[in-house]
Structures are given as C-alpha cells and as structure tokens.
Simulated scan of single mutants.
Amino acid sequence: MKVAVLGCGRWGSFHAWYARRIGHQVMLWGRPGSQHLTELRQKGRNEYLVLPADVELTDDLAAAVAFAEIVVISISSQRLREFCGQLKNLPQLEQKKFVLCMKGLEIDTGKRLSTIFGEELGTDKQVAVWVGPGHVQDFVREIPNCMVIASKEMQLTKELVKAFGSPLIRFYFGEDLLGTEIGAAAKNVMGLAAGMLDGMGYSSLKGALMARGTRELSRLIEKMGGDKMTVYGLSHLGDYEATLFSPFSHNRCFGEAFIKGEHFAKLAEGVYTVEALMDIARDYHLELPICATVYAIIHEHRDPREELLKLFLRDNKAEQD
C-alpha cells in the first residue's frame, strides 16, 4: 500500500519510518525550506531515528497526495485548518483515506481536529485519528505499545487498523471519536500539570492528578455527548505514563521548565489546548479545576505554588462528584 506522510518532524518522521518498516511504500513530505526535511535529505536521519533509504522525500504537496492511498497528517494541530486549505484544491481527495496523528483542539473555536478537517474538505467520513501512548525513542528500540484508531465510520477504522497493525503497535478500534479526540488533547494539559509538580518537588501528587484528571475529563466528554468511559482508555488514561512521567514528554518537560524558569524550545501542544478547553468549559457551564489551574499559571501568570496548592486543598467532596 502507498502511504504519504505530511509533516516530517518527530512524529511525522516516525510514521514514515514505521509505515516502511511494516511493508508500505512511503513518501514523506515537508514544507519547502523545512529544516527537518533538509536534515533528512542531507543525513538520512534526525535526532530520533534513521530513515529507511527507500522512503522518498519531497516538498511537493500535490505529488505526495497523488502518490498515496493513505495520507497521514502529522503537523502542529493549530496549523491544521490552514493546511487543509492547501489540500482542498488537490484532485481525487475523495479516493484517499486520511489519518490525523496529532492531539489538540483549535484555539478560539475549541473544535476537534476531525471537525476542522470536515469543515475545510467537505466531509469527515474519510478521516480518522491515530492516538495513544508511546514515544518515538521507545518504538525505534523495538519496545512495543498499544494505540487506538478512531473515526466516524467503523469500516474505515478497521481498514486502517489492518493497514497499520503490527507486533510493534497493537491497535484497538476506537468507538467514540469525540471522546477519543478530547481525551487525547486534554492529556497534554495533564502533562503540563505533572511537569509543574515535578518542578516543585511534588511528584508524589501525580497519582492524585491522574485520578482527578480522568474524572474531570470524563464529565466534560459526557457533557459534550461522548462516552464518559472513553477517557479511561488508551487515548487519555492509557497515555498518562508517556505524558506524566516520561523524560521524553514535551508537555511534562515544558511544565517542569516553566516552574524552574527555564526555556523549553520544543512544541508543547497542551499550552494551546488548555486555552480551547477553558472556552469549551464556559460554553458547557462546566468546572474544570485542573485545566483552570494550568491556564491561570501559564496564561494569567499566577503564582504556581499558590495555584497548585489551592487546587489540592479545595473543599471536601464525594470522590465521584
């Protein structure tokens, strides 16, 4: 099968590496002038992996999409709408299967990525999301993990699971697209909070953060019309080890660096996602205490120690409230 991967950063290069590893023909696209693409062309590798020599590299978007039966998109979630604007004039899109391999919500609208794709390209029936735990650094060392693919159409989900499943990644069928996307995006916010606790020396509170974080998001997903149990699956709770504890987690590292007053240059999607979540919470008249605390610290410049301690010293309540 022919797979085009659009985006050649950490995860994009991994998806190209993985698709070729399991036997697909692969073309990897990067925008013209991309430093990531230049590095791969010059060295055949980046800081994460060695790219198979027969992965074709291109900066021609039309050629990459025309090449593929399956199009994997792995870019910054905040750039998806603009990027779809570049895609929608390309021919034969209706014949392609699209997979979004990012986690996030659009700032200002709070919309999910599959919703944005549907709005811009006219349909959300040919797009799926691929999320769940795992780090590039572990996969390339042959350490296996479990992930989830979800879409509106179960037939599409099953086709993609069949296409990408292997002994390295066991895929599950996601049955709740809304809950899968919200959970996957929101776990990055929990990663920021975990990093803040690490930065303060309060790492033992991460157990409480996990328990209350899942409860907080289950209420939101239910309010939005999804299945509240989805948050306890691979897209959210299943990804906590990789996000709340791993030294490879960009969001956890950002949160820790923020507390310590250090600069962290790599992309931490949770910084943007928490803005969207607060807008959603207001729309649904729902309290999200952990998300609100992270937002107050990062975007309102509130005192981190005071805000985090206030969060964990809230009034007593029943655990399931």
Rank of each mutant, 00 (worst) to 15 (best):
G238S: 08
V189M: 00
E319K: 01
T115M: 05
Q92K: 10
E241S: 10
E106H: 01
T230V: 12
L309W: 08
L160S: 11
F254S: 04
A184V: 08
P289V: 11
L308I: 09
A265D: 13
L220Q: 06
G195A: 04
V50L: 06
A208M: 15
Y172P: 00
S203E: 09
E300R: 15
P32F: 14
T58P: 05
L156G: 01
H36M: 02
P167V: 04
R170K: 15
E94W: 11
V55L: 13
V274M: 15
A163T: 05
L237C: 00
H15M: 14
D279K: 14
L192S: 10
R10Y: 10
G225N: 08
H263T: 13
R20S: 11
F98V: 12
K152I: 08
A281Q: 13
K111M: 15
A128L: 10
K266I: 13
L217G: 03
A296H: 11
G104E: 03
F264K: 05
L121M: 12
S77C: 13
K228T: 00
G179W: 04
G238N: 08
M190H: 05
K260T: 00
I298A: 04
L90T: 09
I221E: 00
F117H: 10
A281T: 13
V231T: 14
F171W: 14
Y240S: 10
L192F: 14
A281I: 12
L93K: 01
R282T: 08
D321I: 15
L308F: 06
M147A: 14
A63Y: 01
G132A: 03
A281N: 05
F258E: 02
K317D: 12
N188F: 05
Q78S: 07
G191S: 01
F254Q: 04
P32W: 15
G30N: 06
E216S: 10
K158I: 07
M27C: 09
V274Y: 07
L6F: 11
L286T: 03
G165H: 13
G30D: 08
G213H: 09
M27G: 04
Y172L: 14
G238Q: 03
T58A: 02
T214G: 15
K260A: 08
A257R: 10
A53F: 07
A186H: 01
D303L: 07
V3W: 14
I116M: 00
I221G: 03
H15P: 00
E119R: 11
E300F: 04
N188K: 10
G201T: 01
G207W: 10
V131T: 15
E216R: 08
E300T: 04
E262R: 02
L93G: 08
Y295K: 03
M190C: 09
K187H: 06
F258A: 10
E222W: 05
T109N: 12
I297R: 02
K152F: 06
D227I: 01
V231I: 15
V136S: 09
R21P: 02
H236K: 02
G122K: 09
L57D: 01
A242Q: 12
A257I: 11
T38A: 14
G23I: 09
R302C: 05
L220W: 01
